[in-house]
């Protein structure tokens, strides 16, 4: 199939940026969305133009590096929910489609180049308190801390977050609540994490606000685009934890 792509081009953080139109030719249905971009880039290099920069690494939906807004929705979740853009295949599109591709847009995710943005704000939120403070060594035998199976399952549901930032990209307020809530809930749900529960939620929320993310207005758009379908229930849980910590 042949497609028309409107791709955001931006030389660097200072550049204003604009859309450019490209034609993607002979795209097969088994290609992933990123492989389609690879092919477009190969063609661009052959024509002597600079290829479009976009982030990707594992290409199996787990590293969280890919970050494309496809026709207005992060990861193209309107075509396939519960997956990152690298797992979206071209069989979901049809010949002649026009596809608009933009980067994540948020003040806390400054642009780097083209479709690449800087998500280190997420790392700084984790650095502020998204951990259990144990040093290496000296930990008790793993089975001395029993964890009820439902708690382990629930913690895992939250811990599945891949930190891609689609939740921020999708939120009309560019809020990072789902990301932060997932980590807070993962750690608080486990007995190991309850010791520092109050401090953790306070520090992480403070850092989140400091990074310039917006507030949550409970539209659940984040959950709908999340590659791991992390539930907004965790946002309620974090709010509960936060109120408890005051």
């Amino acid at each position: 199939m042949n497609l028309t792509l409107n791709v955001w081009r931006q030389r660097n953080a200072q550049d204003k940026g604009h859309f450019l139109e490209y034609q993607a030719k002979d795209i097969g249905p088994d290609m992933s969305f990123l492989e389609m971009l690879d092919q477009m880039n190969e063609d661009l290099i052959k024509q002597g133009s600079e290829p479009v920069a976009f982030d990707s690494d594992c290409r199996e939906g787990i590293c969280g590096m890919c970050s494309l807004v496809i026709n207005g929705v992060p990861h193209g979740a309107q075509f396939q929910s519960g997956s990152a853009a690298c797992q979206l295949h071209m069989r979901k599109f049809k010949d002649g489609d026009v596809i608009t591709i933009e980067p994540w847009r948020a003040k806390a995710f400054p642009a780097v180049k083209d479709l690449v943005c800087d998500r280190s704000a997420f790392d700084r939120i984790i650095q502020a308190g998204g951990y259990i403070s144990v040093n290496t060594g000296g930990t008790p035998d793993a089975n001395t801390i029993p964890v009820p199976k439902p708690a382990a399952e629930r913690a895992m549901d939250a811990a599945a977050c891949i930190g891609c930032g689609a939740c921020v990209a999708a939120c009309k307020n560019a809020s990072a609540m789902l990301f932060v809530a997932a980590k807070v809930s993962h750690l608080t749900t486990l007995p190991q994490g309850q010791v520092e529960a109050k401090e953790r939620v306070q520090k992480m929320v403070a850092r989140m606000d400091q990074e310039g993310f917006g507030h949550c207005t409970n539209q659940s758009e984040c959950q709908a685009v999340c590659p791991k379908e992390i539930s907004v229930d965790f946002i309620a849980q974090m709010n509960r934890e936060y109120l408890k910590s005051l």
Partner: peptide, 8 residues
Amino acid sequence: QCAAQGVP
């Protein structure tokens, strides 16, 4: 170590 860190 991993269990103490909260690996689910």
